[in-house]
Design a protein around this nucleic acid. Structure first.
Length: 202
DNA sequence: ATGACGATTTACT
DNA sequence: GTAAATCGTCATA
């Protein structure tokens, strides 16, 4: 399959958030096994002007450093003391914007994803729809953590994006982002995108 | 050095 | 619908 290019990523976050729907996120584990999922839900974070973004007001700390770097790299953070979430960095230096990947439709490596996701509920009981239907779920299923923060999605070999099926504009639904009630006016803006009626959306 | 908090998930009432 | 889990990060002192 064909990789997405640097140019593909170096666009405004809203444009990228829509363009990422239908593309395929690939994770190659240390033992060589390939896990993959089709992106079905995203959110755009608009950088220094966006109260919900980690770079709001120009905040630049060790945690958010990769958001300040070039487009097409991963920004992976840890929150609530137990979860990781993955973003695709948009635009480029000076514009610390990104797209949160909120849900995938698993397409390769589901058995391995089950072992990663298994907890109180045994792996055998987890259905495909339980594997990647949320930002922290997909990070756990795909084996993503701070060790992959900053990874180059265009040239890297552990985590990257491949061209998927084309998505029609009329199949994209937008709405408010999730879990950012503290962000005032920004909490209401329609910066969440997903494929209409898709069963793997969070 | 300390304390408040979070781009979530899961279990329980 | 409500709440607990759980800790790195960052602003404040």
């Amino acid at each position: 399959m064909r990789r997405l290019t640097r140019r593909f990523h170096a666009r405004e976050p809203v444009t990228l958030a829509r363009a990422l729907l239908g593309q395929v996120l690939v994770r190659v584990l240390d033992d060589g096994e390939r896990l993959a999922g089709r992106i079905v839900e995203t959110e755009a974070y608009l950088g220094v002007i966006d109260r919900a973004a980690h770079t709001y007001g120009g905040r630049r700390t060790p945690r958010t450093e990769s958001m300040w770097g070039p487009a097409g790299h991963a920004y992976i953070y840890f929150l609530y003391g137990m979860h990781h979430c993955m973003n695709v960095v948009a635009q480029g230096p000076g514009h610390p914007t990104a797209v949160l990947i909120r849900a995938l439709e698993p397409v390769e490596g589901m058995a391995r994803m089950r072992t990663h996701r298994a907890g109180r509920i045994p792996a055998a009981r987890l259905r495909d729809v339980d594997l990647c239907s949320g930002p922290a779920k997909l990070a756990q299923a795909m084996g993503l953590d701070r060790g992959l923060d900053g990874a180059d999605l265009v040239d890297g070999d552990q985590l990257f994006l491949e061209r998927g099926r084309r998505v029609r504009a009329e199949d994209i639904v937008s709405g408010p982002r999730i879990g950012i009630a503290y962000a005032g006016d920004w909490a209401l803006k329609p910066l969440r995108f997903h494929l209409r009626g898709h069963p793997h959306v969070s």
